[in-house]
Write a protein that binds this DNA or RNA. Structure first.
Lengths: 217, 217, 217, 217
DNA sequence: CATGAATGAGTGTTCATTCAT
DNA sequence: TATGAATGAACACTCATTCAT
């Protein structure tokens, strides 16, 4: 008998692809019909697998939801810092990049993003606690940027907690009322306009001149 | 002989009280456990009535949810214009008053307010359509204030649709993440700080001086 | 205190009228929707009284059904012998008159008549037993006529039980498949044709000549 | 590699057996307690399956009833023509064979046969319409025999519609009042006696001699 | 006598989950 | 691995019945 390392790798890749396939189907269905509106039967059908198989990859329906939400939070955790880094050293630019990154990720996971807001009460206390703490974590890079910008005297001395919450909420707003905007704005519009609006309130007057490219909503 | 009007009035009053009793219980429970997490049995118990009685006042569970949401939208429709009127003729003050009114109403209906965001997918297409159009209606007075303020050159020329959406979203934010803020902010804090932040971005620099009381977050 | 004999009579008349009103409504509704398809609410509405009042006149829903059925059986008990008497002394004529009477009564109580067949399983064992024995009773005059006609050598020596059952079943057939016949036959047609058919089988050949008026279907 | 046909066949056979198991249990229970007197729970218990499984094979309780009734009508459609064919060319013999076949099938499906009469109001308009038209279809071979016998001058010129209705009703009579006859007649008795009675009425006097075996009730 | 608001046991139905294959 | 038949607890909803007015 061998350890089958390559076979194991293949199996693992296959498993990962299955998870992906299932989570994407779940996100699409749950966004449309809500968590409770999606049966495991329907999910299995949408993902073209059998019901039983879902239970090989997830402990139950709740865990599927948790994983769907988790994927978004994961994307935040990995892609937002990256986007901030790319934006260079200026804290204002970094903040703007962070906001844009949040919006982009939400757009990419539009189906799943709303679930954070809509289905949180569905989860077990423990699952909810994990989500909450991950959400708080999610905001950390944004809060750091804001604090930097304030410390360097570029932004007014706003409440960092509140402001980062607002920016995140507005980023989610793209998904929450997508049906409202989809005909009038595309993602770029949305990001540009929101940035102009919010940064107009954040920048100290004396530095506005340096960021006209951000303020031109 | 009289028309029996008093007996009818008493009955009607009783019915109104029942509806209130049920909707309050429903809002509280649904906020905590989500629409699907609340059984009619549980609702009946919470409201101290029998299951059957609920069906005398509402056509079904969906209709209860619809009515809960409707009550908030109703409060917006009646109380926001009133608050705006009281704020006098200045469009900036009127806008600020409108935002404060939204926040206050949401605080008063904290349980119910989140349901608009969370449980919309639960409703029938028709119910959802009614809610959507009522929501759009809800924003009308705010949009009017904003447009006035822009037309008079007090606010920058922002996208009225988007901006009113932001303000409404932030107002709802008080309910959506109440658990996050309740230990650090009270409603007044929240309104004041958000007002300062947003109006800082909206007011043209030359008029900021006239509204320092709003900008001191 | 007085015995209020006239008042009592008035009250009793009123009560009788109520019972009639209720039973007629019940028969109509139950024929259309079946016993289980008729709620006490619906019955109350149809009879233009309140739900509570029904319980003043009947012990419960089952008892209403029982009474509806009973009314038909009562009509049989009182009207069939009368019709037989009117038919004179000839046992064949008497039998024919009995059959016609059954059919006529069923036509008059068309709604209720089918309930005997349809809803018997609904009743309590005791109620069913009472109905059964009343039904057997119902056939007694018919059986007597048949026996007479056989004894006098007018009818062939058929099984009286079976034959009376057949005639009763065919009489009920008018109500059971009313929807099938109503466009092609009226009651008179039905009775005449069935009589011709059945009496053709019953009469001994040598007496057929004397009853051509019955055999001309 | 094969097409998996044997596995599929096995599954399908299993499914067919389940349907049979369920329908037989349903017929038995519904005959005893009426459609509304049988709960899905009770049906599941009687059939030794779980409630949920019933819904895998039938769309709902109504559909179970429909299927129960349908099975009888199916038996009529397939077995009656066969029985007629076996009876040879003589239209009288054919008619007698048809009647006997109806009675036999009803006896075999005694539980289900009564449901046609009792529970028709329970079904949806559409289901009822399907049953009605199937019932009319059911009588077609009998009507054909009767017409033949009349055309050949063997039977009197009776109303074919009505007469076939009578014969069918009498066949059902065996199930409708089984409790009444079971101690005095067996199926053969019943068929023989009813045949004698009815054919006595149908045959023209000049042909009675040729069918004494049918007329000796 | 008459009302109809209120009750709650009972119903049909769904669906997350399991497990023999 | 993968299937999907089978389970049964839980649900929304109905309606016969009661009783305060």
């Amino acid at each position: 008998m061998n350890t089958g390392s390559p076979a194991e790798a293949a199996r693992s890749a296959r498993a990962e692809q299955r998870r992906h396939q299932l989570l994407t189907a779940a996100a699409r269905l749950m966004e449309r019909d809500g968590f409770h509106g999606v049966s495991m039967q329907a999910l299995a059908e949408e993902a073209s697998v059998s019901v039983g198989l879902i239970y090989r990859y997830f402990g139950g329906k709740d865990e599927v939801l948790l994983a769907v939400i988790w994927r978004v939070l994961d994307a935040f955790a990995s892609q937002v810092p990256e986007a901030i880094d790319k934006a260079g050293p200026d804290p204002v630019e970094r903040t703007a990049a962070a906001f844009a990154a949040y919006c982009t990720i939400i757009d990419e996971h539009r189906h799943a993003a709303v679930l954070t807001y809509r289905e949180s009460r569905t989860l077990s206390t423990e699952g909810r606690a994990r989500i909450k703490s991950a959400e708080v974590e999610t905001g950390r890079p944004l809060r750091a940027c804001l604090r930097e910008a304030i410390d360097e005297g570029l932004f007014r001395d706003v409440d960092v907690e509140l402001c980062s919450y607002d920016l995140l909420l507005l980023a989610h707003g793209w998904a929450l009322k997508y049906w409202y905007f989809e005909h009038s704005h595309d993602l770029q519009d949305y990001v540009r306009t929101q940035t102009a609006l919010m940064f107009g309130g954040l920048l100290r007057p004396e530095h506005r001149g340096a960021y006209t490219h951000l303020l031109a909503g």
